[in-house]
Computed example of a mutant assay.
Amino acid sequence: MPKLPFPQTATYLSVRQVTEVFAVCPKTVRRWIASGDLPATKLGRDWRIARADLKAFAAARSNTAASHVL
């Protein structure tokens, strides 16, 4: 099992953690959120992405590596 940038029990992930999983910049993750492709919840100034939503997002994009890890 690869080392995850977040605890195995994490329910919600930050934008930074998502960038590490998908190897993209934070701006890309925020674009996915703004377009509605990636469901997220705003807490103050920060976004949190549910792990289940992220797994579905990865599967929909045919990113089997990321969906398997999540």
Rank of each mutant, 00 (worst) to 15 (best):
residue 46 D to H: 15
residue 6 F to V: 10
residue 15 V to L: 09
residue 27 K to D: 14
residue 46 D to Y: 09
residue 44 G to K: 03
residue 66 A to D: 02
residue 10 A to G: 09
residue 29 V to W: 07
residue 2 P to C: 07
residue 35 S to G: 08
residue 2 P to A: 15
residue 51 R to P: 07
residue 37 D to S: 11
residue 38 L to Y: 04
residue 39 P to M: 01
residue 49 I to W: 03
residue 67 S to Y: 00
residue 15 V to C: 14
residue 17 Q to C: 08
residue 35 S to V: 06
residue 62 S to L: 15
residue 66 A to S: 10
residue 38 L to Q: 03
residue 58 A to T: 08
residue 55 K to Y: 00
residue 46 D to N: 10
residue 53 D to H: 15
residue 35 S to E: 13
residue 45 R to A: 07
residue 70 L to E: 04
residue 41 T to D: 09
residue 1 M to L: 07
residue 15 V to H: 08
residue 63 N to Q: 11
residue 18 V to L: 10
residue 47 W to K: 05
residue 26 P to H: 05
residue 9 T to G: 04
residue 54 L to V: 00
residue 61 R to H: 14
residue 64 T to G: 05
residue 31 R to I: 09
residue 25 C to L: 15
residue 66 A to W: 02
residue 6 F to C: 09
residue 9 T to W: 13
residue 8 Q to V: 14
residue 21 V to Y: 08
residue 54 L to Y: 03
residue 43 L to S: 07
residue 39 P to Q: 09
residue 60 A to P: 04
residue 1 M to I: 11
residue 37 D to A: 13
residue 14 S to Q: 12
residue 53 D to R: 11
residue 32 W to Y: 12
residue 35 S to F: 02
residue 14 S to A: 14
residue 65 A to P: 00
residue 50 A to G: 15
residue 23 A to N: 15
residue 63 N to R: 09
residue 30 R to V: 11
residue 40 A to Q: 03
residue 57 F to D: 02
residue 36 G to N: 01
residue 40 A to Y: 03
residue 30 R to I: 11
residue 67 S to R: 11
residue 56 A to P: 08
residue 60 A to F: 01
residue 58 A to I: 02
residue 32 W to Q: 03
residue 33 I to Y: 03
residue 9 T to E: 14
residue 29 V to C: 05
residue 32 W to E: 00
residue 39 P to T: 02
residue 29 V to Y: 01
residue 1 M to S: 12
residue 54 L to P: 02
residue 33 I to C: 10
residue 47 W to A: 04
residue 42 K to H: 01
residue 39 P to H: 05
residue 68 H to W: 12
residue 69 V to T: 05
residue 5 P to S: 14
residue 52 A to C: 14
residue 4 L to K: 12
residue 38 L to R: 03
residue 53 D to Y: 08
residue 49 I to R: 05
residue 62 S to A: 15
residue 34 A to Y: 06
residue 63 N to H: 06
residue 64 T to N: 11
residue 37 D to R: 14
residue 5 P to C: 10
residue 10 A to I: 04
residue 20 E to F: 14
residue 41 T to V: 15
residue 27 K to A: 15
residue 68 H to P: 01
residue 68 H to L: 08
residue 37 D to M: 10
residue 17 Q to Y: 04
residue 10 A to W: 09
residue 55 K to N: 07
residue 1 M to W: 00
residue 10 A to P: 13
residue 70 L to W: 01
residue 7 P to A: 13
